[in-house]
């Protein structure tokens, strides 16, 4: 199974990921990161790991990793 990982401290809340997410899996935290933005959060249940957030993010917040166990199963 793939995992989606976020570097929340880089998020500038531009909402390009939010606008393009096909599963409505992205929301914004009520807390602020160090830069003062309500950073993006992903609902892992809704997320289909399509990578569109990675494609549209200008700030390198998102990464999708395939865990070693899943790689071995392929």
């Amino acid at each position: 199974m793939e995992s989606i990982n976020l570097k929340s401290e880089r998020c500038k809340q531009c909402e390009l990921c939010f606008a393009h997410c096909p599963s409505d899996a992205i929301s914004f935290s009520n807390e602020l990161n160090k830069a003062g933005f309500n950073f993006a959060c992903v609902d892992e249940e809704k997320c289909i790991r399509c990578g569109i957030c990675y494609t549209m993010c200008p700030d390198g917040v998102y990464a999708i990793a395939i865990n070693p166990q899943a790689k071995g199963e392929q």
């Binding site: 494609t55 200008p58 700030d59």
Partner: peptide, 12 residues
């Protein structure tokens, strides 16, 4: 981290 404005296309 890069210091572009939020939503700037440079980062992509």
């Amino acid at each position: 981290p890069m210091s572009f404005c939020a939503g700037c296309g440079h980062g992509i």
